[in-house]
């Protein structure tokens, strides 16, 4: 990892109202617990990819009643209504980012890699996990790397730069207008890059 890149991302993400943290794989769970406790997260939803990519095993450190895991989509699909009802009771989501862009302090999420997408907008808090190889310097670099994954872009992608916000009332900044008001990025500094 280039420390300067993370430092630039951290500063820009923080200026946009986001909360960036970096830790090692062995301390990732401790850090998650600290973030969740600080945000008063009672009901959590883990995206399956976050658990598998970063070996989180929430059953080992969370009471069973306090978390759920996004189910893998079946050919029949999900029950839209039940999924929506569930998401409206969730306080925090643990998901993953596909790129972190230092220039703007943004996380890029390719929707096809993350079954469902309401979890990115509906709960009040979201934690995005990322590995160092996902850090890029600028928007052009991110789009260049995105173009190499064109088969995954059918459902589009989003760039998240801090929490949902508004300044529509006398230019006063208010966080959490329609989407999450707490957005965390947790970089796992020693997470392996693909193929190595």
């Amino acid at each position: 990892m280039t420390p300067n890149l993370w430092e630039q991302f951290r500063r820009h993400f923080q200026e946009a109202g986001g909360q960036p943290y970096a830790t090692s794989a062995t301390k990732a769970v401790d850090m998650l617990q600290t973030i969740i406790a600080g945000a008063n997260g009672k009901q959590l939803l883990f995206e399956a990819s976050a658990i598998s990519e970063f070996s989180l095993h929430p059953e080992a450190w969370l009471p069973e009643s306090s978390f759920s895991i996004t189910p893998a989509p079946t050919p029949k699909g999900w029950d839209r209504k039940r999924r929506l009802e569930r998401l409206l009771t969730v306080d925090m989501v643990v998901s993953t980012a596909d790129f972190l862009i230092a220039e703007t302090g943004s996380a890029l999420v390719i929707l096809q890699k993350h079954p469902g997408q309401w979890h990115l907008w509906l709960p009040p808090g979201i934690i995005l996990l990322a590995a160092p190889h996902q850090l890029v310097d600028s928007l052009p670099t991110a789009f260049h790397r995105l173009a190499q994954q064109s088969s995954l872009l059918q459902q589009g992608y989003v760039l998240l730069t801090g929490p949902s916000k508004t300044a529509d009332i006398e230019k006063r900044l208010v966080m959490g207008m329609h989407g999450p008001r707490m957005v965390y990025v947790l970089l796992i500094e020693d997470a392996p890059s693909p193929g190595g």
Partner: peptide, 14 residues
């Protein structure tokens, strides 16, 4: 808005 990027940029299709 003087932001490096707005909070959300959605690139969406079908």
């Amino acid at each position: 808005t003087g932001q490096r990027l707005t909070a959300y940029v959605s690139v969406t299709g079908g």
